[in-house]
Design a protein around this nucleic acid. Structure first.
Lengths: 155, 155
DNA sequence: TTGACGAATGATACAATGTAACATTTTTTT
DNA sequence: AAAAAAATGTTACATTGTATCATTCGTCAA
């Protein structure tokens, strides 16, 4: 899907919640959408400076990412300290619980859905030992198909 | 199990691999074993200074943690940027793939085993979309029983 | 015993990531 | 146009992590 279309959808999503997708916010989201991979806040500040010629300080990037995340437009990857555009920006609010496959070699990210029964099984195993699952978002360290080939198979 | 026993086992584990559990390394491991929770490298440096009165710079702590991890005596939690003592120090090498439940409120960590079939199911789901699972270690954001009670149930 | 070697630790500097607090600008509302 | 709210800028600093070189310690052979 064209990134312009995605950004338009995102703008509508913001409007429907009474928020605005401002120029700066659009820049940050566009950076994530176009890169197709996980970027840090500092990566995005560099992107705005180098590719767009607009200054955007890391602190502002953090604020904007927080905003975008609160609307479900981006996700924060805790294991990588990076952010990705939500793969379901265009398919309305009813997102599944996001699960991320993160290529440790090139940083590309695949967002997948995992069956409810699977998550439930996990949740039950956790409850069994007296803990409660507070976040269903899994982040899995992977290699993407390209990088598996490059590295000559599984290490 | 008494922490002294655990440390003795750890020392034997080192010897069997031709390495030494030096005084400093023992201090760091003891800090993790006694605290029963995840600590950052800087937490451990503070621990050595405040509780033990011995100076140990963060750089040294990082080196020591790296050493302990290479022997399977501690695990690094990527989501938390912290380290925990391996719960299976005393039960010899044949560890299962570690899965961690991390309390987001108090930092306590429970290391559990998850059935092989479960991990296999996950792995297959990942292969299906063209990625390869590079690390089977899951880190789950949880609340421990104590903190669930304190916070009045699930938020 | 000593000297050499390697392992372990110390020390310094810096890079990357993230937050707090307050100032300024822009937009909206009245 | 004035007031209020939202968005962004700015500065300072905290936390986490790495790179590099220096120093100390233990071991082993001559």
């Amino acid at each position: 899907m064209k990134s312009e279309t995605i950004l338009e959808q995102a703008a509508l999503h913001c409007e429907s919640r009474g928020r605005k997708l401002t120029a700066k916010r659009r820049q940050v989201l566009a950076g994530l959408v176009k890169s197709q991979k996980a970027l840090s806040a500092y990566d995005l500040a560099d992107y705005c400076r180098d590719k767009l010629g607009t200054s955007l300080l890391p602190t502002s990037v953090y604020r904007i990412l927080e905003f975008l995340e609160s609307l479900g437009l981006v996700h924060r990857l805790n294991t990588a300290n990076k952010y990705v555009a939500c793969a379901h920006v265009t398919c309305d609010g009813a997102n599944e619980i996001p699960q991320f496959l993160i290529c440790q070699s090139c940083g590309s990210v695949k967002e997948i859905g995992i069956t409810k029964s699977f998550v439930q099984g996990l949740s039950q195993a956790v409850e069994k030992v007296g803990f409660h699952l507070a976040n269903n978002q899994l982040e899995l360290e992977c290699l993407c198909a390209d990088c598996v080939v490059q590295q000559g198979g599984v290490q």
